[in-house]
Design a protein around this nucleic acid. Structure first.
Length: 712
DNA sequence: GTCCCTTCAACTAC
DNA sequence: CGTAGTTGAAGGGA
């Protein structure tokens, strides 16, 4: 299955260790031994010896000791005299006694029969499905208060969850949600509609077991749509506090029970449809695409049959800072702690055991199979954790050491396999650029906006010697001299603390079908033209219904592409639905009629063009019907969006954003992420096809499989 | 199949 | 902003 251990031509230089023993016979016949004194990390030794396997009775190579750290019972180790690690936790050795062969599964935890009473008590206190809330807030913290008001039709609670006490009774999973006026809102049908829309009804076993980019993309997309919809609906109910609400779990569960998932079967190595560098915002997303199956656990493993016996091997890990891992400078090295050793309830620590994931990692060390690594990143200033698929690693060595509580912890040193795209290391680099600890290579200007935006926008060229794009004036927004006329006069809202999702009296929410179009962190929830608050609204500038007015929130850079001139990309990860920027420039047309691009202006935004429906964006074709003919030129005046290139498979789309005041309507163009966009991935959108598509046609170099071959 | 257990979540409250 | 407390879902294993 996998190549031999030392066949890797890219292995780091160093003497080949002939003492390594690679037994074909089952490992249970071998005893792992460690070359270093117990408790000492081999990282710190000048010439670390590799982990070796020898027969349990010896002979041992010089400097190695038998490793029996966590013996749990005497009967599994008949010849020891010390009675196991509990009695001699400071000493991994065996003094003068040499142990007899012990199967590795002897290290497994004995079944906790003695704890029957406590587990019974735990069981009795556990109720199920009794939360009074089913539809959730958006996954990210909302600094604004929930409204206390009910919104008719959107306030929800679990239909059968009137009993929140610990009665001990188990309840079935509620499938329906009851609105405030007693009307059932069927989440099932909501989900079913989405599945039909995205053709996930006929999800076959092949797609389920083995994915591709389309499949993973669609599954993640529908997950996020459900999650966001649940959030939006829940926000519209009254603000229940003190209830842990997890739309991510519910969205995942809905999909899982319908079999909408991919890469269902575990595998060693890459997962089809997931690229190195792809980012995720929830652990459940890792489950759904088969990158990492456990919903919480850090180590995923599978059983592999070797000749007669089966043994576990690790397939993926999530390194998320849950244990006291060393955070070294080398992004290609990961020191990973084994699992267990801590009681989640009270934080009590005890020795880790060579079982489950730990055993699998140990086996994977010997089998030298690839292990996928997902890095969890906690961004400063953000409560959110982001997961980055960092590609394939191999386990180089393992050892045990004592943690701060004096308990034994397994450690595994993983080495990133060479030849993979930058992923986690890129995040580290960006962090350095941001902190000023390193200069962005190829940096020309730190901020080409000269402070016009809330975030600096770097100008970078690490391709050739060109010093920048042709001159233009940076303007952060669209300046109207002549707004569009409103069909009916609009009065602003009176939401002094900002528009709240539960406020049925807010006229701005009403314009958006009663639901605010943005989540609390500015993620777009709608697929219709957005009605934002305008100048006659009383809400403050940080109102969430002014998301596109608040300016750019991500750190962007304008960079020289290889073959498509200048482009735009982001240092920050961008969530699906996340706001990026508006299209700024000069309005050159606000009246009906065909627009003729007579000056071969390459910086035209034309809302009246035809746009192919974006499969990933629900109802995108309908939403692209801008209510007014708007043509913007960013040739002389513009913002970052003038650098966004065309792509036939874009990762950004635009939405009409309407801001009304009295009898005036100001139409703006907001750009949002179609899917999660990792840092430094070029931001592109579909330029669309003008009504007169006979001139100005340009050769498209987007390189996507769906490339039309040209753009305008 | 069921039930129980474990688990580098994600949230809210203080 | 740290952390303590709360509620969890999936999958392994018995």
């Amino acid at each position: 299955m996998e190549q031999g251990l030392n066949s890797d031509s890219n292995a780091p230089p160093g003497p080949v260790d002939k003492s390594r023993v690679y037994e074909v016979r089952p490992l249970r016949c071998l005893v792992p031994v460690f070359p270093n004194p117990p408790g000492m990390s081999s990282i710190s030794t000048p010439n670390p010896s590799p982990f070796v396997c020898v027969p349990p009775s010896g002979p041992f190579p010089p400097g190695v000791q038998p490793f029996y750290p966590f013996l749990v019972s005497n009967d599994s180790q008949p010849t020891t005299t010390g009675g196991g690690a509990q009695n001699q936790s400071g000493n991994f050795g065996f003094g003068s006694s040499i142990p007899a062969p012990v199967p590795l599964n002897s290290f497994r935890t004995p079944t906790p029969q003695a704890n029957g009473e406590s587990s019974r008590a735990k069981r009795a206190s556990k109720t199920r499905g009794s939360a009074s809330v089913v539809i959730e807030d958006d996954g990210y913290s909302d600094s604004q208060n929930h409204s206390d008001q009910y919104v008719s039709g959107f306030s929800m609670h679990v239909a059968d969850a009137d009993d929140a006490s610990n009665s001990g009774k188990r309840r079935g999973r509620p499938k329906k949600i009851k609105s405030g006026n007693g009307e059932d809102i069927d989440v099932e049908s909501l989900v079913n509609n989405l599945l039909t829309l995205y053709k996930l009804k006929e999800f076959d076993d092949f797609r389920r077991s083995s994915g591709d980019k389309d499949t993973t993309g669609t599954v993640l997309l529908v997950f996020d749509l459900i999650r966001r919809k649940l959030s939006q609906l829940e926000e519209a109910r009254d603000g229940t506090t003190g209830v842990a609400r997890r739309p991510d779990l519910k969205a995942c569960n809905l999909l899982m029970t319908k079999g909408v998932r991919t890469n269902n079967s575990k595998r060693i190595g890459h997962v089809p449809g997931v690229d190195v560098g792809d980012i995720f915002f929830f652990r459940m997303e890792l489950c759904l695409v088969g990158l990492h199956a456990p919903s919480m656990a850090g180590i995923d493993y599978m059983s592999v049959k070797i000749t007669l016996t089966e043994e576990p091997v690790a397939v993926s890990i999530v390194a998320s800072g849950g244990y006291e891992d060393d955070d070294g400078d080398d992004c290609n090295v990961l020191i990973y702690s084994g699992q267990g050793g801590v009681q989640r309830r009270d934080g009590q620590m005890f020795d880790q055991k060579l079982e489950r994931g730990n055993l699998a990692l140990e086996k994977s060390l010997h089998r030298a199979n690839d292990v996928r690594v997902v890095r969890g990143i906690k961004e400063a200033g953000s409560a959110a954790k982001i997961y980055v698929y960092d590609g394939l690693y191999k386990i180089q060595e393992s050892w045990a050491e004592k943690n701060k509580s004096g308990c034994n912890v397994f450690k595994y040193k993983l080495i990133r396999q060479p030849g993979q795209p930058e992923a986690f290391s890129l995040w580290k680099s960006i962090q350095q650029w941001r902190d000023g600890n390193a200069t962005r290579p190829g940096l020309i200007i730190p901020d080409l906006t000269s402070g016009a935006e809330t975030q600096p926008v770097a100008l970078v060229n690490d391709i050739d010697g060109e010093k920048g794009p042709a001159h233009f004036s940076y303007v952060p927004s669209l300046k109207y001299s002549q707004p569009f006329p409103a069909s009916r006069p609009s009065s602003g809202c009176h939401c002094l603390g900002g528009c709240q999702p539960g406020d049925s009296n807010c006229p701005c929410a009403q314009k958006n079908d009663g639901l605010l179009p943005y989540s609390s962190i500015g993620v777009l929830l709608n697929t219709k033209p957005i009605h934002e608050c305008g100048s006659t609204c009383a809400c403050p500038p940080n109102c969430r219904n002014r998301t596109t007015q608040a300016g750019i929130k991500v750190r962007l850079e304008v960079f020289k592409t290889k073959n498509r001139g200048w482009g735009l990309r982001s240092w920050d990860p961008i969530r699906a639905g996340g706001f990026i920027c508006v299209y700024a420039g000069d309005i050159i047309k606000v009246t009906a009629g065909d627009f003729e691009n007579e000056n071969d202006d390459n910086y035209i935004f034309d809302a009246s063009r035809h746009y192919e429906p974006l499969e990933p964006v629900h109802n995108s074709a309908a939403s692209k019907k801008a209510p007014f003919p708007l043509v913007i030129s960013a040739k002389n005046n513009g913002n970052v969006s003038r650098f966004m290139n065309h792509n036939c498979s874009p990762n950004v789309f635009w939405q009409p954003v309407l801001r009304e005041s009295n009898s005036d309507v100001f139409l703006h163009i907001g750009f949002f992420a179609i899917r999660h966009i990792p840092p430094m991935q070029e931001l592109t959108y579909d330029y669309g096809i003008p009504a007169k598509a006979d001139r100005g046609k340009k050769k498209c170099l987007c390189g996507s499989v769906k490339c039309r071959g040209y753009f305008f």
